[in-house]
C-alpha cells in the first residue's frame, strides 16, 4: 500500500527567511518560557534575600545577568518593560468573574491589537506547545514509516468554539478558573516555572502528555485544531485580520503539497483558508510553483 504523503516528506523550498524568522521567534518564546524563571531565580539568589541556594538550577543560571530581568511571567502573561501582553482568553475568563475594569483592558489591549492585525499568529509563532506538536508529527511520520497506522480524525471546525464556550461556562458554574488548567501554553509555562524553582513537575504535565498522545494517534495537530480554547479565541479575534495566504490559481498545479503540510487543516490549494490559519507560512514555503503568498486583503475588498 502506498504511504500517504506526510508533512515530514515535504521540503520547504523557499520563503526560507520567513521560516527562519518564525523559528527564531518561536525559539525566543520557548527560551523565555524556561529562561525567565531561571533569570528570576538567579536574581533572587544574587539579592541574597531568600533561601534560593537550595535550587538545583543555581549552577546553570550562573551565566545570567545579576539584575532582575525586565520581563515577568511567560508565556501567556508577559510584562515587557512598560506594558502587559496578557492572553485574551485568560483575560476574558477573569473578566467573566470580575466584571469590566480598565486595568484588564490595558493588559489585554496590546495582545488583541496584534491578533486583530496578524490573525492567529500566536499558534504558529510563539506557542510553547509547538515543540510538542512537532514531536507528535515526527512520531506520526515514524509510525507510518514502520507501517503502523495512525488515525487522523477530523473533528468539525466548530468543536474548538464549543470547547471555548464550554470551558468558560463550566468554569463559571463551578466558580473556578478552568482556563489555566486546560490551556497548554499556560500549563507549559507554569510547569517550566515549577521545574526551575522547585525542581519538580506538577499535575499539569498530564494534560500536555494527553494532548501529545491525541495528536500522535488520534488526530494530527488535533488539539490545536479542534480542542484548544485559546486557539479558538485567537481565531475569533483574528477573523478580521487582513494578512492572508492567497493562491494565484494560474500558477497552481493542484499538487496538494500545501494542503498536506498545513497542521490546521486549511486548504490553501483551493483558496479556502479561514480564521484558523496560524500564519506559519509553511504552505508558501512548500509550494513548488510559488503560487502562494501573503497578501493584504481587507474583508470584502480586493488587495
Amino acid at each position: 500500500m502506498k504511504r500517504a504523503l506526510q508533512p515530514f516528506d515535504i521540503t520547504l523550498r523557499h520563503g526560507k527567511r520567513y521560516q527562519a524568522l518564525r523559528r527564531l521567534f518561536l525559539g525566543f518564546s520557548v527560551l523565555l518560557t524556561v529562561g525567565l524563571p531561571m533569570w528570576h531565580l538567579h536574581a533572587l539568589e544574587i539579592e541574597g534575600a531568600g533561601r534560593a541556594a537550595d535550587s538545583r538550577w543555581s549552577t546553570l543560571a550562573r551565566f545570567l545577568p545579576d539584575t532582575p530581568p525586565p520581563f515577568f511571567g511567560a508565556p501567556t502573561s508577559v510584562w515587557v518593560w512598560f506594558f502587559d501582553l496578557v492572553d485574551p482568553l485568560e483575560t476574558l475568563a477573569t473578566a467573566l468573574f470580575r466584571g469590566f475594569s480598565w486595568n484588564l483592558v490595558w493588559t489585554v489591549l496590546p495582545g488583541v491589537v496584534l491578533v486583530v492585525a496578524l490573525g492567529r499568529f500566536f499558534c504558529g509563532w510563539a506557542c510553547p506547545y509547538l515543540p510538542v506538536l512537532a514531536a507528535a508529527n515526527a512520531a506520526r511520520w515514524l509510525l507510518s514509516r514502520l507501517g503502523i497506522p495512525t488515525a487522523d480524525v477530523k473533528l468539525p471546525r466548530v468543536t474548538s468554539r464549543v470547547v471555548l464556550v464550554g470551558v468558560l461556562l463550566v468554569g463559571s458554574m463551578l466558580g473556578v478558573q478552568l482556563v489555566p488548567l486546560v490551556y497548554p501554553p499556560a500549563i507549559i509555562g507554569r510547569e517550566a516555572f515549577r521545574a526551575v524553582f522547585y525542581g519538580s513537575l506538577g499535575a499539569g504535565g498530564l494534560l500536555v502528555a494527553a494532548a501529545f498522545v491525541f495528536d500522535t494517534f488520534v488526530s494530527r495537530a488535533g488539539f490545536c485544531r479542534s480542542l484548544c480554547p485559546g486557539g479558538a479565541m485567537f481565531s475569533v479575534l483574528g477573523s478580521v485580520s487582513p494578512v492572508r495566504v492567497v493562491n494565484e490559481r494560474s500558477k497552481c498545479t493542484d499538487c496538494t503539497v500545501c494542503d498536506v503540510i498545513c497542521n490546521l487543516g486549511q486548504s490553501p490549494m483551493t483558496n479556502a483558508l479561514d480564521s484558523g490559519c496560524e500564519r506559519c507560512g509553511k504552505c508558501i514555503a512548500s509550494c513548488p510553483t510559488k503560487a502562494l503568498s501573503f497578501k493584504i486583503v481587507f474583508p470584502g475588498g480586493k488587495s
Binding site: L36, P37, H40, L44, E47, A49, G50, R51, A52, P68, F72, G73, T76, S77, W79, V86, D87, E90, T91, A93, T94, F97, R98, G175, V176, Q177, V179, P180, L181, A186, G189, R190, F193, R194, F197, Y198, G202
Partner: peptide, 21 residues
C-alpha cells in the same frame, strides 16, 4: 480563585519563595 489566571508572576518575584503552587 476566580480572578487568578495562574501566571506565576507573584511567585517569580517573591524574594523568600514563600509563594508556591
Amino acid at each position: 480563585e476566580q480572578a487568578c489566571i495562574g501566571c506565576f508572576r507573584c511567585a517569580e518575584v517573591c524574594p523568600t519563595k514563600v509563594i508556591r503552587f
